[in-house]
Design a protein around this nucleic acid. Structure first.
Lengths: 148, 148
DNA sequence: TGTATTTTAATTGTGCACAATTAAATAGTA
DNA sequence: TACTATTTAATTGTGCACAATTAAAATACA
């Protein structure tokens, strides 16, 4: 066998890199109505599950740090999707909570997962298997990396 | 079954998004010696396969447009890894070619694929299967998307 | 030939993404 | 208590990523 590992074609990370960006592009028209980006959509998904969340908790959930989240959350606050306020118990923490507009956006977004899947020509089972493989890969990096 | 598709946990694209970024982080220390970023490494990989390439061809290969490539290539030119020059046959096209330093970087980078794989706790077969699945997914987006 | 269309990069503007640093609050401890 | 260490966000600076626009060159074609 002995494939050339220096070839782009043989690199798993390039496949990940390219596929992720193409998938993100598929979201763009679906998120246009809500006037949000894909990372902002992820913040909303997290908050629709648990509201409110600290910046720290949001970062752990999305694998993002405050350097990314702080400016993004400020933009979302300006759009009146979320609000930010210091925690009473721990003044270091900033809580991120949904506004009424942010809560209502969930209804508008309810169709997005299905619409997105329509663009992917793969069986439900295959997608599930892919997701599981990726999650295992992701968990594996926690040992080496320095992620919370 | 009827899982909640609005949950982050159940979204394939979130797994892709998070895993890709964590993988890219694994490259950082491996690329530190060469003083390049992961996207710059991809440009070099493409050029080590075919030298030179037009910006257009590079973009098709990496799924990037000139808005991303032009400034990135200028940075790489400043670092003396590549050179850029207009094509003689077609003055619209800009050719990107390796410099001596860019060529020599291939030797230094030769160990990177293996070093990276050491960080992924998956069998060769499983990685191959994952790569094939992603590539199929990527190809599928070409039908819908507007990619060259 | 001359004009409209297409192709190719570059530019402009916005929004992540992340390393490194800073500052404030809390926790730990002598 | 005072003093150190840790935790939490924000800030700073750099580098993608991409939509939209612009400008130059090549092509199509009337």
């Amino acid at each position: 066998m002995a494939e050339d590992k220096m070839k782009l074609e043989n690199q798993i990370c390039f496949s990940l890199y390219a596929t992720t960006r193409e998938m993100t592009k598929l979201y763009r028209p679906l998120l246009a109505d809500l006037n949000i980006t894909y990372p902002q959509y992820l913040v909303l998904l997290a908050l629709w599950e648990t509201n409110p969340l600290t910046v720290k908790a949001l970062g752990s959930r999305l694998y993002l740090d405050s350097g990314t989240l702080t400016p993004m959350l400020k933009r979302m606050e300006k759009e009146d999707l979320i609000e930010r306020y210091r925690s009473q118990e721990d003044e270091r923490s900033v809580l991120v909570g949904l506004t009424e507009k942010g809560r209502q956006a969930e209804d508008k977004a309810a169709c997005i997962p299905d619409l997105l899947l329509e663009n992917i020509d793969m069986s439900e089972q295959e997608i599930l298997h892919l997701k599981n493989t990726l999650n295992r890969m992701l968990e594996g990096t926690k040992e080496k990396g320095e992620n919370g």
